[in-house]
């Protein structure tokens, strides 16, 4: 499948030099997290009630996650756009099935995306060039694809969770895990004490863990 050139706008990754931060923000983060959970919960509730502005907010927050997932799973920009569109339209139409909880919303969207990706694959399989898959889709290949997709989805869920961290934690976690900088290097870069940096990285890892577990848990629900 050809990947036509697309306007892919890498978002969210801030390549600017990290700002320097004033110490003393570590404790404020916990409140922020709780507040975030409340925001997501009420967003889900509004969506279930049929509030269109909630759909817009849900789209704005998770469309990059869903789009990237579709892009990675399908390797085709056009198909990824179609899937993204379908996921949010489907989310709207089946919103009654959503249980509002902080992680249920992304888990639910990813679940819908999984189905849409499978639909595209099935449509492709019917393509003459993919005849082999069309007639007797080998279970093994399917399972492999599925587990690859799951891995992609989890990676993206983690990435999304990082992007939702308040700064400076977000920047520190990105530097630590994506840029693989040492805690000392990060401390130097952002101008915070080593202990503060360590604490942010630790809390960041735990938050990512919790977010991922939540999504995993909610994905397993029927």
């Amino acid at each position: 499948m050809n990947v036509p050139p697309v306007e892919q706008t890498p978002v969210l990754l801030d390549r600017r030099a990290p700002r320097r931060y004033v110490d003393g923000v570590v404790t404020g983060v916990r409140d922020f997290e709780e507040e975030q959970d409340d925001v997501v919960r009420s967003l889900a509730a509004r969506l279930v009630e049929g509030d269109e502005s909630a759909l817009e907010a849900v789209y704005d927050r998770w469309s990059a996650l869903i789009h990237t997932y579709a892009l990675r799973a399908l390797g085709d920009a056009h198909d990824a756009e179609e899937v993204t569109q379908q996921v949010f339209v489907a989310a709207w139409r089946s919103r009654h099935t959503l249980t509002p909880s902080p992680s249920a919303l992304p888990a639910w969207l990813v679940g819908i995306a999984r189905h849409k990706v499978a639909d595209v694959r099935a449509a492709r399989a019917r393509d003459a060039g993919r005849l082999a898959a069309a007639v007797a889709l080998p279970e093994v290949r399917h399972a492999e694809e599925q587990s690859k997709d799951d891995e992609v989805a989890e990676r993206l869920v983690v990435r999304q969770a990082v992007e939702e961290l308040p700064d400076p934690r977000r920047t520190i976690v990105l530097l630590a895990f994506w840029e693989e900088l040492s805690h000392a290097e990060i401390a130097e870069k952002v101008g915070l004490p080593l202990g503060t940096v360590k604490s942010h990285v630790r809390r960041g890892l735990i938050k990512l863990h919790q977010q991922l577990e939540g999504v995993r848990h909610d994905s397993r629900r029927p």
């Binding site: 978002v11 789009h67 990237t68 892009l71 756009e81 569109q85 891995e151 999304q160 976690v173 895990f177």
Partner: peptide
């Protein structure tokens, strides 16, 4: 282990 990979890519505005 999962903290790697490229950033998220927003879909074009027309999708919205």
């Amino acid at each position: 282990r999962l903290t790697s990979g490229e950033p998220l890519v927003a879909p074009p505005a027309r999708v919205r």
